[in-house]
Write a protein that binds this DNA or RNA. Sequence first.
DNA 1: ACGGATTCCTGATGGC
DNA 2: TGCCATCAGGAATCCG
Length: 286
Amino acid sequence: MPELPEVETIARTLAPEVVGREILGVSAPDPSALQPSLAGFAALAAGRRIVSVGRRGKLLLIALDNQGVIGVHLRMTGRVTTCGPDQEPDRPRAVLALSGGQRLCFADVRRFGSMHAFGPGEIEAWPFFASLGPEPLGLGAAEFRARLGQGRARIKALLLDQHVVAGIGNIYADESLFRAGIRPDAPACGISPRKRDGLLAAIQTVLAQAIAENGSSIRDYRDANGDAGAFQNHFKAYGRGGKPCLACGETMRVARVAGRSSTFCPHCQRGGGEAAVLCSAPPHKS
DNA sequence: ACGGATTCCTGATGGC
DNA sequence: TGCCATCAGGAATCCG
Protein backbone atom coordinates (compact mmCIF):
# COMPACT_ATOMS: atom_id res chain seq x y z
CA MET A 1 0.00 0.00 0.00
CA PRO A 2 1.80 3.07 -1.15
CA GLU A 3 2.15 5.60 1.62
CA LEU A 4 4.51 8.57 1.78
CA PRO A 5 7.81 6.62 1.58
CA GLU A 6 6.58 4.45 -1.27
CA VAL A 7 5.28 7.39 -3.30
CA GLU A 8 8.52 9.26 -2.63
CA THR A 9 10.46 6.26 -3.92
CA ILE A 10 8.29 6.01 -7.01
CA ALA A 11 8.85 9.70 -7.70
CA ARG A 12 12.61 9.34 -7.36
CA THR A 13 12.80 6.28 -9.60
CA LEU A 14 10.32 7.60 -12.14
CA ALA A 15 11.94 10.99 -12.64
CA PRO A 16 15.10 9.87 -14.50
CA GLU A 17 12.96 7.75 -16.83
CA VAL A 18 10.42 10.37 -17.84
CA VAL A 19 11.67 13.93 -17.18
CA GLY A 20 12.31 15.73 -20.44
CA ARG A 21 10.10 13.42 -22.45
CA GLU A 22 7.02 14.52 -24.33
CA ILE A 23 3.65 12.84 -23.83
CA LEU A 24 2.79 11.65 -27.32
CA GLY A 25 -0.46 9.88 -26.63
CA VAL A 26 -2.80 8.42 -24.03
CA SER A 27 -4.52 5.05 -24.12
CA ALA A 28 -6.69 3.48 -21.45
CA PRO A 29 -7.89 -0.13 -21.38
CA ASP A 30 -9.88 1.05 -18.36
CA PRO A 31 -10.94 4.65 -19.09
CA SER A 32 -12.36 5.06 -15.58
CA ALA A 33 -8.75 5.29 -14.40
CA LEU A 34 -8.46 8.72 -15.99
CA GLN A 35 -9.92 11.99 -14.73
CA PRO A 36 -11.67 14.08 -15.81
CA SER A 37 -12.16 11.54 -18.65
CA LEU A 38 -10.04 9.81 -21.24
CA ALA A 39 -10.65 12.59 -23.75
CA GLY A 40 -10.23 15.32 -21.17
CA PHE A 41 -7.05 13.77 -19.84
CA ALA A 42 -5.60 13.42 -23.33
CA ALA A 43 -6.46 17.01 -24.18
CA LEU A 44 -4.61 18.24 -21.09
CA ALA A 45 -1.62 15.90 -21.30
CA ALA A 46 -0.88 15.17 -24.96
CA GLY A 47 1.86 17.30 -26.46
CA ARG A 48 3.12 18.37 -23.04
CA ARG A 49 6.64 17.73 -21.83
CA ILE A 50 7.31 16.32 -18.36
CA VAL A 51 9.50 18.71 -16.38
CA SER A 52 9.66 17.08 -12.95
CA VAL A 53 8.18 14.34 -10.75
CA GLY A 54 7.32 14.95 -7.13
CA ARG A 55 4.93 14.12 -4.36
CA ARG A 56 2.43 15.69 -1.97
CA GLY A 57 1.29 13.35 0.79
CA LYS A 58 0.52 10.08 -0.97
CA LEU A 59 -0.19 11.86 -4.23
CA LEU A 60 2.36 11.44 -7.03
CA LEU A 61 2.76 14.66 -9.02
CA ILE A 62 4.02 14.73 -12.61
CA ALA A 63 4.62 18.36 -13.54
CA LEU A 64 4.13 19.48 -17.15
CA ASP A 65 5.82 22.22 -19.13
CA ASN A 66 2.71 24.40 -19.24
CA GLN A 67 2.41 24.51 -15.40
CA GLY A 68 -0.19 21.78 -15.61
CA VAL A 69 0.24 18.61 -13.62
CA ILE A 70 -0.82 14.96 -13.54
CA GLY A 71 -1.77 13.76 -10.07
CA VAL A 72 -1.71 10.01 -9.48
CA HIS A 73 -3.68 8.47 -6.62
CA LEU A 74 -2.30 4.96 -6.07
CA ARG A 75 -4.65 4.09 -3.21
CA MET A 76 -4.01 0.43 -2.35
CA THR A 77 -2.70 -1.44 -5.32
CA GLY A 78 -1.78 1.24 -7.82
CA ARG A 79 1.55 0.93 -9.61
CA VAL A 80 3.32 3.41 -11.84
CA THR A 81 6.11 1.86 -13.87
CA THR A 82 7.92 2.56 -17.09
CA CYS A 83 8.42 0.08 -19.86
CA GLY A 84 10.11 0.29 -23.21
CA PRO A 85 8.68 -0.66 -26.58
CA ASP A 86 9.77 -4.28 -26.22
CA GLN A 87 8.10 -4.88 -22.84
CA GLU A 88 4.42 -5.65 -22.35
CA PRO A 89 2.90 -3.82 -19.39
CA ASP A 90 1.05 -6.08 -16.94
CA ARG A 91 -2.69 -5.38 -17.13
CA PRO A 92 -2.45 -1.60 -17.39
CA ARG A 93 -5.47 0.61 -16.78
CA ALA A 94 -3.78 3.46 -18.63
CA VAL A 95 -0.63 4.01 -20.65
CA LEU A 96 1.11 7.26 -21.60
CA ALA A 97 3.27 6.96 -24.71
CA LEU A 98 6.37 9.12 -24.27
CA SER A 99 9.02 10.34 -26.67
CA GLY A 100 12.05 8.12 -27.15
CA GLY A 101 9.97 4.94 -27.11
CA GLN A 102 9.38 5.12 -23.37
CA ARG A 103 5.99 4.39 -21.83
CA LEU A 104 4.49 5.27 -18.45
CA CYS A 105 2.07 2.56 -17.28
CA PHE A 106 -0.55 2.74 -14.58
CA ALA A 107 -1.76 -0.64 -13.27
CA ASP A 108 -4.08 -1.16 -10.33
CA VAL A 109 -5.80 -4.51 -9.70
CA ARG A 110 -8.35 -3.22 -7.25
CA ARG A 111 -9.10 -0.16 -9.35
CA PHE A 112 -9.34 2.27 -6.44
CA GLY A 113 -6.63 4.53 -7.80
CA SER A 114 -6.77 7.08 -10.60
CA MET A 115 -4.79 9.57 -12.63
CA HIS A 116 -5.99 13.17 -12.78
CA ALA A 117 -4.81 15.68 -15.36
CA PHE A 118 -4.93 19.38 -14.50
CA GLY A 119 -4.33 22.50 -16.53
CA PRO A 120 -2.21 25.40 -15.24
CA GLY A 121 -3.32 26.37 -11.73
CA GLU A 122 -6.17 23.87 -11.61
CA ILE A 123 -4.85 21.42 -9.07
CA GLU A 124 -4.80 24.05 -6.33
CA ALA A 125 -8.58 24.24 -6.71
CA TRP A 126 -9.03 20.49 -6.36
CA PRO A 127 -10.62 20.00 -2.92
CA PHE A 128 -8.63 16.87 -2.13
CA PHE A 129 -5.36 18.62 -2.89
CA ALA A 130 -6.27 21.89 -1.23
CA SER A 131 -7.35 20.23 2.01
CA LEU A 132 -4.24 18.10 2.53
CA GLY A 133 -2.52 18.62 5.85
CA PRO A 134 1.17 19.51 6.13
CA GLU A 135 3.99 17.17 5.20
CA PRO A 136 5.12 15.28 8.31
CA LEU A 137 8.82 15.51 7.45
CA GLY A 138 9.88 18.98 8.45
CA LEU A 139 6.69 19.59 10.41
CA GLY A 140 7.28 21.56 13.60
CA ALA A 141 6.50 20.11 17.02
CA ALA A 142 4.26 22.98 18.04
CA GLU A 143 2.10 22.71 14.95
CA PHE A 144 1.83 18.95 15.27
CA ARG A 145 0.76 19.24 18.90
CA ALA A 146 -1.90 21.72 17.91
CA ARG A 147 -3.18 19.77 14.92
CA LEU A 148 -3.97 16.72 17.04
CA GLY A 149 -6.36 18.85 19.06
CA GLN A 150 -8.05 17.90 22.31
CA GLY A 151 -10.99 15.87 21.00
CA ARG A 152 -11.84 12.29 21.77
CA ALA A 153 -10.85 11.01 18.34
CA ARG A 154 -8.46 8.10 18.57
CA ILE A 155 -4.89 9.00 17.79
CA LYS A 156 -4.67 6.46 15.00
CA ALA A 157 -7.70 7.92 13.26
CA LEU A 158 -6.00 11.32 13.37
CA LEU A 159 -2.75 9.97 11.92
CA LEU A 160 -4.68 8.37 9.07
CA ASP A 161 -6.66 11.57 8.44
CA GLN A 162 -4.90 13.28 5.53
CA HIS A 163 -6.31 16.64 6.62
CA VAL A 164 -4.32 16.42 9.86
CA VAL A 165 -1.02 15.28 8.36
CA ALA A 166 -0.51 14.10 4.78
CA GLY A 167 1.08 10.81 3.80
CA ILE A 168 0.63 8.40 6.71
CA GLY A 169 -1.28 5.13 6.15
CA ASN A 170 -1.90 2.03 8.21
CA ILE A 171 1.63 0.70 8.15
CA TYR A 172 3.45 3.82 9.27
CA ALA A 173 0.74 4.75 11.75
CA ASP A 174 1.24 1.41 13.55
CA GLU A 175 5.02 1.62 13.34
CA SER A 176 5.11 5.19 14.66
CA LEU A 177 2.71 4.51 17.54
CA PHE A 178 4.75 1.48 18.57
CA ARG A 179 7.96 3.47 18.65
CA ALA A 180 6.27 6.28 20.55
CA GLY A 181 4.71 3.89 23.08
CA ILE A 182 1.15 5.07 22.46
CA ARG A 183 -1.90 2.86 22.09
CA PRO A 184 -3.63 3.28 18.72
CA ASP A 185 -7.00 3.72 20.45
CA ALA A 186 -5.80 6.44 22.81
CA PRO A 187 -7.99 9.55 22.52
CA ALA A 188 -6.13 12.69 21.51
CA CYS A 189 -7.29 14.54 24.61
CA GLY A 190 -5.27 12.16 26.77
CA ILE A 191 -1.96 12.53 24.98
CA SER A 192 0.39 14.96 26.68
CA PRO A 193 2.47 17.53 24.79
CA ARG A 194 5.55 15.50 25.63
CA LYS A 195 3.95 12.35 24.14
CA ARG A 196 2.95 14.31 21.05
CA ASP A 197 6.52 15.44 20.56
CA GLY A 198 7.69 11.86 20.89
CA LEU A 199 5.11 10.72 18.39
CA LEU A 200 6.18 13.29 15.82
CA ALA A 201 9.80 12.28 16.30
CA ALA A 202 8.82 8.62 15.81
CA ILE A 203 6.87 9.46 12.65
CA GLN A 204 9.78 11.39 11.19
CA THR A 205 12.29 8.69 12.08
CA VAL A 206 10.17 5.89 10.64
CA LEU A 207 9.34 7.75 7.43
CA ALA A 208 12.96 8.77 6.86
CA GLN A 209 14.20 5.24 7.43
CA ALA A 210 11.51 3.81 5.15
CA ILE A 211 12.48 6.24 2.39
CA ALA A 212 16.11 5.20 2.83
CA GLU A 213 14.98 1.57 2.38
CA ASN A 214 12.94 2.42 -0.74
CA GLY A 215 9.62 1.82 0.98
CA SER A 216 7.82 -1.28 2.21
CA SER A 217 6.64 -4.07 -0.09
CA ILE A 218 3.90 -6.23 1.43
CA ARG A 219 2.67 -7.63 -1.83
CA ASP A 220 1.71 -5.02 -4.42
CA TYR A 221 4.07 -2.13 -4.01
CA ARG A 222 6.86 -1.70 -6.56
CA ASP A 223 8.85 1.37 -7.56
CA ALA A 224 8.90 2.79 -11.09
CA ASN A 225 11.50 0.20 -12.11
CA GLY A 226 9.39 -2.68 -10.77
CA ASP A 227 11.67 -3.21 -7.76
CA ALA A 228 10.43 -3.95 -4.22
CA GLY A 229 11.36 -1.94 -1.14
CA ALA A 230 13.01 -3.33 1.98
CA PHE A 231 11.50 -1.55 4.98
CA GLN A 232 9.06 -4.44 5.58
CA ASN A 233 12.09 -6.19 7.08
CA HIS A 234 12.17 -3.56 9.81
CA PHE A 235 8.52 -3.71 10.88
CA LYS A 236 8.12 -3.84 14.65
CA ALA A 237 4.32 -3.70 14.76
CA TYR A 238 2.55 -3.99 11.39
CA GLY A 239 1.67 -7.59 10.59
CA ARG A 240 3.13 -8.91 13.86
CA GLY A 241 -0.13 -9.73 15.64
CA GLY A 242 0.21 -12.82 17.86
CA LYS A 243 3.99 -12.65 17.72
CA PRO A 244 6.20 -11.60 20.62
CA CYS A 245 6.97 -7.90 20.98
CA LEU A 246 10.49 -7.22 19.80
CA ALA A 247 11.04 -4.95 22.79
CA CYS A 248 9.49 -6.84 25.73
CA GLY A 249 8.39 -10.26 24.46
CA GLU A 250 4.71 -9.82 25.26
CA THR A 251 2.26 -11.07 22.63
CA MET A 252 1.34 -8.37 20.13
CA ARG A 253 -2.39 -7.67 19.95
CA VAL A 254 -4.57 -6.83 16.98
CA ALA A 255 -7.56 -4.56 17.43
CA ARG A 256 -9.90 -2.77 15.07
CA VAL A 257 -9.24 0.96 15.36
CA ALA A 258 -10.50 3.59 12.95
CA GLY A 259 -11.78 0.77 10.75
CA ARG A 260 -8.27 -0.61 10.31
CA SER A 261 -6.58 -3.60 11.82
CA SER A 262 -4.10 -2.19 14.29
CA THR A 263 -1.25 -4.11 15.84
CA PHE A 264 0.27 -2.98 19.12
CA CYS A 265 2.04 -4.20 22.24
CA PRO A 266 -0.22 -3.97 25.30
CA HIS A 267 2.82 -3.57 27.53
CA CYS A 268 5.00 -1.12 25.61
CA GLN A 269 2.10 0.96 24.28
CA ARG A 270 0.27 2.16 27.35
CA GLY A 271 0.52 5.84 26.54
CA GLY A 272 -2.88 7.52 26.42
CA GLY A 273 -4.53 4.77 28.43
CA GLU A 274 -4.80 7.11 31.37
CA ALA A 275 -6.87 9.35 29.14
CA ALA A 276 -10.13 7.69 30.14
CA VAL A 277 -10.21 10.02 33.13
CA LEU A 278 -9.13 13.13 31.30
CA CYS A 279 -11.66 12.63 28.51
CA SER A 280 -14.58 11.29 30.45
CA ALA A 281 -15.86 14.66 31.61
CA PRO A 282 -18.12 16.15 28.94
CA PRO A 283 -17.03 19.64 27.85
CA HIS A 284 -19.36 21.69 30.05
CA LYS A 285 -19.39 24.89 28.04
CA SER A 286 -22.36 27.17 28.23
C1' DA B 1 -20.29 19.19 14.66
C1' DC B 2 -17.88 15.34 15.56
C1' DG B 3 -16.54 10.76 15.19
C1' DG B 4 -17.63 6.11 13.89
C1' DA B 5 -19.28 2.89 10.27
C1' DT B 6 -19.94 1.75 5.57
C1' DT B 7 -18.73 1.50 0.74
C1' DC B 8 -15.95 0.66 -3.27
C1' DC B 9 -12.88 -3.43 -5.55
C1' DT B 10 -10.41 -7.93 -6.42
C1' DG B 11 -6.87 -11.25 -5.17
C1' DA B 12 -4.94 -13.96 -1.41
C1' DT B 13 -5.97 -16.85 2.24
C1' DG B 14 -8.00 -20.21 5.49
C1' DG B 15 -11.43 -23.36 6.98
C1' DC B 16 -14.30 -27.19 6.03
C1' DT C 1 -9.81 -30.60 -4.24
C1' DG C 2 -12.90 -27.05 -4.42
C1' DC C 3 -15.82 -23.68 -2.71
C1' DC C 4 -17.03 -19.87 0.02
C1' DA C 5 -16.39 -16.50 3.62
C1' DT C 6 -13.14 -13.32 5.22
C1' DC C 7 -9.63 -9.93 4.97
C1' DA C 8 -6.75 -6.14 3.14
C1' DG C 9 -7.31 -0.54 3.15
C1' DG C 10 -7.53 5.24 1.24
C1' DA C 11 -10.78 8.27 1.25
C1' DA C 12 -15.64 9.63 0.13
C1' DT C 13 -19.89 9.34 2.08
C1' DC C 14 -23.42 8.08 5.17
C1' DC C 15 -25.23 7.85 9.83
C1' DG C 16 -26.01 8.48 14.88
